[in-house]
Design a protein around this nucleic acid. Structure first.
Lengths: 156, 156
DNA sequence: CTGAGTGCAAACGCTTTGCAAGTCA
DNA sequence: TGACTTGCAAAGCGTTTGCACTCAG
């Protein structure tokens, strides 16, 4: 009758801790102190499977460390971003959202109805972008590709 | 000794006037009044060959109608946008920029050093985007592709 | 110990909005 | 005329910052 096997739960937890340590290490290497507040936030960011904004991250961190302020959340996120361990995304008409820079580069599809974000990657698109820039005499520093989408409906 | 042939100048002016009329028509059809201020702004938007922000458009319109306020600029731009005759672009870390919805859809390259914008279009990229969205069960409502670039330098 | 980090509130930059006065149709 | 539009100033929003206090190392 157990619907969530213990090994699976445990497996997830280990991976989150690993991620948390990555974030912690990045900050320590940058010479910043790991305070109670930051530790809580790092754990929250590491655990996030979605793309939360600063207010949402603050809400989650607040459950662990009631005293944490929104300023500290922003300050720490900015620091993490400049260390390159998280990414900041500015989708249309929304507050910035953050995500752990876990995997390789990817782009985003945003469901305009639900706000849900789906990640995708296309080597062919990347290549075409580079070709276009090169043809016009430029190198790409970075790029942003966002698809604002709506679920297909089977024959209305 | 005339370096700017009259026919060329005149050709440009006609096209700007045509564009101005397109904008004016769109507003009139939407049932809004064409005031002195709006007429000036429409002419400025129609004449713009770059991608100016609200403050810059205000500055340009201000030369024609000294009284025009920034609020009016924003209000009119918002109206034009909702009529679909201009587009609003929110590039990274900048105020929104506007452009006349003159031609077919295109994407943007932003020179990170100068802020200059180059327009481009790739049918192949568009197609790949649609395929990717479709494969995941979505239809694209709209998309945003921005390349932040830097001029190539011939062998430093 | 002591300088980096904190919470708070105030400031920020861009944009929108409430309102009384002005103006276009 | 009378509804729509304006300019102004104030508010809104997400984010950053100055400050005196606190705490991690």
């Amino acid at each position: 009758m157990r619907h969530t096997p213990r090994w699976r739960k445990f497996g997830r937890m280990i991976s989150i801790e690993t991620r948390t340590q990555e974030l912690t290490g990045a900050l320590r290497r940058a010479g910043v102190r790991i305070t109670r507040q930051r530790a809580a936030l790092l754990a929250v960011v590491a655990a996030a499977k979605d793309h939360p904004d600063a207010v949402e991250l603050h809400r989650r961190a607040h459950e662990k460390v009631p005293g944490i302020s929104l300023s500290t959340v922003y300050r720490t996120l900015t620091e993490l971003e400049s260390q390159g361990v998280i990414h900041r995304h500015q989708f249309e008409g929304e507050a910035a959202r953050f995500e752990h820079a876990k995997t390789a580069h990817h782009d985003h599809m945003i469901d305009v109805d639900t706000g849900a974000v789906v990640e995708f990657h296309s080597e062919r698109i990347e290549k075409l972008q580079a070709e276009i820039a090169a043809a016009l005499g430029y190198d790409i520093v970075h790029h942003r590709l966002e698809l604002y989408v709506r679920r297909k409906r089977a024959a209305d």
